Simulated scan of single mutants.
Amino acid sequence: MTEVIILAAGESSRLGFPKQTLLYRGKTLLELAVEAGIKSKCSEVMVVLGASAKTIEMGIQHYGVNILVNPNWTDGMASSIIWGLNSFKDKTGIDNAVIMLCDQPFVSSFIIDKLIDKHQETNKKIIACEYDKTIGVPALFDRSVFPELLLLKGQEGAKKILAKYPDDVATIPFETGSVDIDTISDYQAFLNTFK
């Protein structure tokens, strides 16, 4: 079985308010991410919150997903990855985890399922998305890689593991994966481009 971990703990300091609540086509960015996870082949969806957790949580409670609040969210992204993994690392039957962000609006259940399919086809330990001449999240990590993820620190993300084990990585194309939103101008440009 595969779990989805949606990282949504950041304070969106460059934006000035929680980016998780930005709207696109009538849904918040976090709702879009949650729905992608729910509609995918994954067995469970976990959302890791931190800054503004109470406000953000209210918007996704009705989905019935697992919501974790990372008390150490100010330590950086690594702490949220660790918090998410630790919540199910002792569960039997969990073979993989898909790590994704809440500010990539074009992540869909199709993309998540492609990660799972590619893992089954290639038996590679890591399946990442390829976009804009780079590879990154969403990415699937085999359980055997969890100990490496648990060693991440500070602002380090899953990309560090992708770089460390290139021979263990396969990719799927995700052209719009490079679209993420960090500032008001990013959001306005995004809305202008993708109405």
Rank of each mutant, 00 (worst) to 15 (best):
G93N: 09
T92E: 07
D75A: 15
I81F: 10
K89R: 08
G64Y: 11
G59W: 09
I67G: 10
K91Q: 12
N66P: 00
V45N: 08
A51Y: 03
E35D: 00
K89A: 03
W83E: 15
M58S: 03
E35I: 13
T92P: 09
I94H: 01
G64H: 09
A36M: 04
M46P: 08
A53G: 13
I60Q: 08
G64S: 11
L85H: 07
K39I: 07
V34G: 03
W83N: 14
C42H: 02
K39N: 12
M77H: 13
E44Y: 06
G76N: 01
I56V: 15
L85Q: 05
E35M: 10
G37L: 05
Y63S: 11
A51K: 08
S40Q: 00
F88R: 09
E35W: 01
T74C: 06
I56S: 02
L68G: 04
K89T: 03
G37P: 04
S87D: 12
G93R: 03
D95W: 04
E44Q: 12
I56R: 10
S87R: 11
K54Y: 14
L85K: 11
V47L: 04
A53F: 13
K91Y: 12
M46F: 13
I82D: 09
S87P: 06
M77A: 13
V69E: 02
L68Y: 06
A78Y: 02
W83F: 15
V34A: 10
C42L: 01
A53M: 04
G84F: 07
K89G: 09
G93T: 02
L68R: 03
K54R: 15
T55D: 12
L85S: 02
V65G: 09
T55R: 14
P71L: 09
Y63V: 12
I82A: 11
S52N: 15
V34F: 07
A53I: 10
G37Q: 03
K89Q: 08
V69S: 05
A36Q: 06
T55G: 06
I56E: 09
A53C: 12
S52P: 01
G93F: 02
K89M: 03
M77R: 08
